[in-house]
Each structure stands twice: as C-alpha cells, then as structure tokens.
Amino acid sequence: MKPACRQMIDLLAAVSDDQLADPTPCTEYGLGDLVEHIDEVARGFTGIARKDGGEQATAVRGPDLAGGPRADVAKRVQVLGESWDDPEAWRGTTDGPGVELPNELWGKIALTELVVHGWDVAQSIGRDVELPDDTLKACLDHVAEFVPNAPIPELWGDAVQVPPGASRLDRILAITGRNPFR
C-alpha cells in the first residue's frame, strides 16, 4: 500500500491550480473532482483500517483545491498508508457503502483505487507512474479476480483488450476499464 500512497502523494504535489479543470481518463471526474475523490478514498479506507469510522482521518478535513499542492489530501493519503501497515487493519469485516466485505478485501480495493487513480492523475498532468513490481502484482491479482465479479459492477468500465506482452500496469488499467493503449 505504501508505494502506491507515496506515488499518489508525489502526483498530488505536482498538480497545479490551472490543471484542476482538466479532464482525466476517469471520464466521470475532472482533475479537481478526482482529487476530491482521492480525499474521500483516503478518509474512508483509513476509517476501515482503523475501525473508527474515519474520525481520525477527517481531522484535516476537505481538500484545499485552490492552494497549490494538495497538501491536506496528501497528508490523508499518507495516513492511509500508515493505517494499513497495522496487521489488525486486514482482519475482520466492515460494512461499506451498501456491502459488507472482509477487511483484507477492503485493503485490496484501497490499493486498486490508489494505483488506478494514480494513473488517472499522472495521465492528466503528463507524468509517468512508477510502482514496484510487487505492488503491481498484488493489484493485478486482485483486479483480475474481483472486478469481473464485483458486488457493485458499475464502479468500473468495460474491460479493454490487452495486447500480448502488456505490462502489469496496463493489464490492471484494462481490467478496470481504462485504455492505456491510446
């Protein structure tokens, strides 16, 4: 989780105010909206990890989208990574938005959010995503099994065909409905 969090923190720091209205590969969000969604993801999944409903994660509430680097959101992303370092975070079950899942699965969903939306942000600001192979392997193993059978399938777009030899990141993106081959 932490490498994906570090990547997201670096990307958030690179977003400028004049880019907030830019489109993203996540067609339902402009870049500013996507930053707000990442903030919600960080707060929500920190709450799941800490089993506290997100109270501690909301101490620095609401992204400052007009103040240069997205420091508040980045802080919450850092807390997210730290929260899932605790082995207890991965145990038990938690009722999320309309579905109760094992925390181990919630953690994998959080990782997927960071990896996929990290790529969305990177594409919007002209950056590359660089994640360790073990992070990408964990995410790919998750999405390959979970996304086709997801309890809320409309959260992802239709899968995109991948050419032979596609990278792990490209396969993750394709399974979740992104087209990294454009």
Rank of each mutant, 00 (worst) to 15 (best):
A122G: 05
R76T: 12
L131Y: 04
L65G: 09
P63Q: 03
D64P: 05
V41D: 10
D141Q: 09
E130M: 06
H117N: 10
G118I: 00
T176Y: 06
V77S: 04
L111F: 12
A110Y: 12
E82W: 01
A159F: 12
V77G: 03
R168N: 11
I175R: 01
P87I: 03
A42I: 04
G98D: 00
A59Q: 12
I125S: 08
P164A: 13
I175Q: 06
N149F: 02
G81I: 03
E55N: 11
D134A: 04
P163Q: 14
P148F: 05
I152P: 08
G54Y: 12
P163K: 10
G62W: 04
T176K: 06
G53N: 08
A74S: 02
N103W: 15
R76C: 12
R127F: 08
L169N: 01
A110L: 00
L101Y: 11
W156M: 08
P102S: 15
S124D: 03
V121S: 11
V162P: 02
D120C: 10
D86W: 13
P148H: 05
G68F: 08
E145Y: 04
D128Y: 04
A66S: 13
D39R: 07
A74M: 06
Q78C: 14
N103L: 10
A159P: 03
Q123H: 15
G47F: 07
K75I: 10
P97L: 14
A74F: 02
V121N: 11
E154T: 13
K75D: 15
A74K: 03
V73Y: 15
V79C: 05
F45K: 02
I172W: 00
P132L: 00
G67R: 07
P163R: 11
I125G: 02
R127S: 05
V60H: 15
A49R: 01
D141C: 01
D134P: 03
K51D: 09
F146A: 02
E145L: 13
F45V: 08
L105G: 09
D133Q: 14
W106T: 09
A42Y: 00
D120Q: 07
